[in-house]
Design a protein around this nucleic acid. Sequence first.
DNA 1: GCAAGGTC
Length: 630
Amino acid sequence: MKILCVAEKPSISKAVAKILSGESTRTRKTRAKYIMNYDFKFNFPQYGLCDVTMTSVVGHITNIDFPPEYSWGKCPPGRLLEAPTLEVVSQQDVFKNIANEARTANILMIWTDCDREGEFIGWEILQAARSTNTNLTSENVLRSQFSHLERNHILHAAKNPISLDLNAVKAVSCRMELDLRVGASFTRLLTDLFRKSSVANTSMDKDKKSNVISYGTCQFPTLGFIVDRYLRVKSFISEKFWYISVDIKMENDGEVQLVPFTWTRGHFFDRLFVTLIYQDCIANPFGKITKVIRKPTSNWRPLPLTTVELQKDCARIFKMSAKDALDAAEKLYNKGFISYPRTETDQFPQAMDLKELIGKQSQDTRWGSYCSELLHEDKYRTPRGGKNDDKAHPPIHPVNYVNLSALDNDKLKKVYEYVVRRFLACCSDDAKGELNTVTLQWGKEEFTATGLAVIAKNYLNIYPYKKWESSKQLPNFIEGESRSITGGKMKEGKTSPPNHMTEPELIGLMDANGIGTDATIAEHIFKITNRGYVVKTKQRGTEYILPSELGMGLIQGFDRIEFENISLSKPFLRKRLENSLQEIVDGRTTKEQVLREVIQLYRQAFVQSAQKGNILLQAYKDIIDSNNNP
DNA sequence: GCAAGGTC
C-alpha cells in the first residue's frame, strides 16, 4: 500500500515526516524550489505497514482568472461581474510533483493547515493528484487534523483522519470569485475613468507610484479607516469643560506632601452647574476621609503571541512597519529559530513541552539566568489562554536558541528578542502590587486618591516592553478623620483632538472588522501605500498614516454617490461576506446563493459608479482645489 | 496592467 501525504508548506512536511518515520527518511529533491519528497514506512492502524511519500505544496497552486477574451480593454469592465472564470495552474512545478508522486498512490492524505484556506488547498492538491490517478476518489482521500507539531498530536492525526470539508472548499472558492470579479471590474473602471480625465492626470503624478487605480474589497475599507480618522481630526472642535480638584496637605516625617484627589464625577461641560457644586463645597473648610482601602492587585502577564499582536507591538516598540515585522519573523521561522509566524491562536496546546523551550534559552547571557529561575525555583506558571484558536498553528514562540550576535540585522535581533521575552513572560507569574485607594468627602462630593506599590515585578523583570511602576506612596489616612481642605479648586480643561491613524491602531481596526487575515493585513497596508492612496509621515517621533489627495478623493467620491444598501469604503460588506462564508461552511446556505446576492449588490454599485463617474472625478478635484486654496 | 488568499 502506498500513501501520498501532502502538506501546505515544506516545513510541515519535513516535521511530520520526521515524526512519522522515526527520523529515518530517504530524501529526494524535486524540480520545485523549496520542496522535498520524503520516503519512509509507517504503520497505519487501518492499512498496516505502508510505503509513505510525504511532500508539500507552497500555499495555493492554482488561481482564478478570466479567459483571454475578457482581458483588459477587450470587454466593458462591468462584464467581469458575470464573465466565465478559469482555473489556472500557477505553480507548474509543484503541481507536476504532486501529479508524479500520485501515479502509484493508493491513498492520498491531505496535511494542509486546518483552516478554510487549507481545506481549499487540499482540494487543489486532490485535483493535481487526480490528473494522473483517477482512482483517487472521496473513498481514498483522507484529511488529517492537527494544529501543532507535538509528536503525539501528529501521530494521533495520522491514525485518525477525516475527509475533506467540501463546504469549506466552496466557501473559499466563493471568496476568490467575488474578490476577483469585484476587484477587476472596479479597478478597470477607476483606472480608465481617471486616465481619461485631464485634471486627474496632471495632478495625480505626485501621488502616483503605480499607473493603476485599484479597487479591492480589503484595500478600500482599509483606506476608509484612514480617511475617516483624518476627517475626524480635521473637523475636531475643542470643547471646554470644568471640574473640581482637591489637594490635601499632609506632613509625613517632617516632610510636607500635597496629595491630589480627583473628583469621582469627572468633568462637566456646564460651567454654571460645576460652579454651584463648587460653591456648595467651599462652604466646608474640612473634608472627611470616608474610606481607606488597601487591596492586592495584579498586572497580568501577556497572552501568548499572535501575528496581529506581534505586528502591533513591533510598530509600537520598535517603530517597525507591519510588513517589516512579518518579514523578519518569516526569516526567523525559515531559519528554525521561531515557530510559524502567521497565527491567530493565543493559547498554547496543553501537551506542548514549554519547559523544554525555556531550557533552550538558558544559555543566553541576557535572559538565561531568568530561564533558570523559572525552571528551578518553582517560578514557572502555565501561560494564560486567550479566546482565539485558528485550529492551525500554535502561538508564536521561540523554537531554537540563537545568539543575537549571530543574526544578520537589527530587525531580526529585535523581533527574536521580543518573541523570546514575550514567551518567557507568558510562562511567568503576574506582577503583584498593592493598590491604596482613599476616598474623601467634601461637602456632598466624593474625591479619590490612589497609590500603587509594586511588590513583585515577576514577568516584568523579563519584559521591558511594558511599564507598571509604583506611584508616589500615599501618606497614612485614617478612616473617619477630618482634614482641612488646603487646595480645593474649580478648574477648566478642554477636550483634545484624536491623533491621526498609527499603524498599530490600523492593524487593530482591520483585525476587529475582519479586513484581511493575519497573513495579509500587512500587505493591504503596503498596497494602499504603494498605490499612492496614503502616505506615512513622522510627527514628533510617531509615524502616522494620512490619506493622499487621491485617497481622500476616492473615498469621498464613493461616499457622495450614496449607493443603496452598500458602502464601498466601509468594512461592513466584508464582514457580512465573512458571515456568509461561515454559513456556507455550516451548510446553512450555498456558494451560488451568496454569489448571487453579493454580485447583485456590487452590480448596482458598479452601474451607478459608471454613470456617475463625474462625481468621482469632481470629489478628487475638490480635494485638490481645497488644498490649493485652504 | 485588475483581487485576496496561501507561502518562500
